[in-house]
Write a protein that binds this DNA or RNA. Structure first.
Lengths: 121, 121
DNA sequence: CTTGACTCTATCCGTTTTAGATATATCATG
DNA sequence: CATGATATATCTAAAACGGATAGAGTCAAG
């Protein structure tokens, strides 16, 4: 059987990611962060179109943590309240799979000519 | 104020689209279709990762219809049971805005180097 | 100092979105 | 005419999401 990309089946089964989960993983991709910072960065990453409230944020963080996709680090930053999270290798792989799925879909849309080729400007 | 893309604000406020809504609009982008066909095409478009059950499908169709993003056409096809839907101009514009949002995000991920540039193979 | 704005985590509660099961009827094929 | 795919639809429950609220720690300005 031909596989275009080396993903486990159980990885694929988690796709597509819910919006909140996707953005939390995305926000953690470049650095370890605490919840409030994740919230701010998501707003910026998304150009303001996505902003999680505290309920969605902390609920999602707990869920991802339970699933082993992110983990709390032991490093302490100035502010003692902060709980800092990092992507696990599984989380990073899942995020990569989601990016890949999205790009595949956009490429397909272009081939179908339902998405104007450049779409830029 | 500088706008990168000429979208209404109220259009932006509907983004990101829920997965089911996005895929229904996407499936209707190349041709008018009835519900059952939309369901089949979504499974194919998504490479099997997304398959809506009847509940999600028809609930979503009704919602999009109420919002004026799709509309039932009057054309009849052989099978009398079929109710055929088409994208409205608003629906097409919203779909375009969603595609644009997704591509922007993927481009950003590449610039941040959290998405390996080719990701191919 | 202290006051007020911001930071930070957290939960309550309701709404929206999604999924499985089920129902009912029509169509196509052998 | 029977069997399986087609086709629409709803019931019920779970998952995802968002606003409101809470409480405590930080920090800068006066």
């Amino acid at each position: 059987m031909i596989r275009k990309y080396p993903f486990d089946d159980d990885l694929l089964e988690n796709l597509p990611l819910p919006t909140a989960s996707f953005f939390v993983l995305f926000a953690l991709a470049d650095a370890d962060k605490h919840g409030y910072r994740i919230m701010q960065d998501i707003r910026e990453l998304s150009g303001g179109t996505v902003s999680l409230g505290p309920a969605t944020l902390y609920t999602t963080i707990r869920k991802l943590s339970d699933q082993g996709l992110i983990s709390e680090t032991s490093e302490s930053s100035g502010d003692e309240r902060r709980r800092i999270y990092a992507l696990t290798s599984g989380g990073r792989r899942l995020l990569g799979a989601e990016f890949h799925r999205q790009q595949q879909l956009l490429d397909l849309a272009r081939r179908m000519k339902v998405l104007k080729i450049g779409e830029q400007k």
